[in-house]
Computed example of a mutant assay.
Amino acid sequence: MDQPRLQALAADLEQWLARLASADAQVADLRGALEPLLALAASGALTAPLPWGDIPGGRYFTEGGLRQYPELELAFARFRIEATGGESPALRKLRGEP
Rank of each mutant, 00 (worst) to 15 (best):
D2Y: 07
Q3L: 14
Q3H: 09
Q3I: 12
P4T: 01
P4L: 08
R5F: 06
L6F: 02
A8K: 09
L9T: 03
A10Q: 02
A10H: 03
A10I: 06
A10E: 01
A11H: 02
A11Q: 11
D12W: 04
L13N: 03
L13H: 00
E14R: 15
E14K: 08
E14W: 02
Q15D: 11
W16Y: 11
W16C: 07
A18V: 14
R19T: 15
R19V: 09
R19E: 13
L20Q: 10
A21M: 11
S22L: 12
A23V: 13
D24N: 14
A25D: 14
Q26D: 14
Q26G: 03
V27F: 04
V27I: 10
D29H: 11
D29A: 15
L30M: 10
L30S: 06
L30Q: 07
L30E: 05
R31Y: 00
R31M: 10
G32L: 07
G32E: 10
A33C: 01
E35H: 09
E35D: 14
P36M: 05
P36Y: 05
P36K: 07
L37F: 05
L37T: 07
L38F: 08
A39C: 03
L40K: 12
A41I: 02
A41T: 04
A42Q: 12
S43E: 14
L46R: 01
L50I: 04
P51Q: 13
P51A: 15
W52F: 11
G53A: 15
G53I: 10
G53P: 00
D54L: 05
I55A: 01
I55R: 06
P56A: 11
P56T: 04
P56K: 11
P56N: 02
P56R: 14
G57Y: 06
G58S: 13
R59F: 09
F61K: 01
F61L: 03
F61N: 00
T62L: 13
E63A: 12
G64M: 09
G64N: 02
G65K: 13
G65P: 00
L66T: 00
R67A: 01
R67T: 10
Q68N: 05
Y69G: 01
P70E: 01
E71M: 13
E71L: 14
L72E: 01
L72V: 06
E73T: 10
E73D: 04
L74F: 05
L74I: 12
A75M: 08
A75F: 08
A77T: 12
R78F: 08
F79H: 09
F79G: 02
A83T: 11
A83Q: 01
G85Q: 04
G85H: 02
G86C: 02
A90Q: 08
R92E: 11
K93T: 09
L94S: 10
R95V: 00
E97P: 00
E97S: 00
P98E: 12
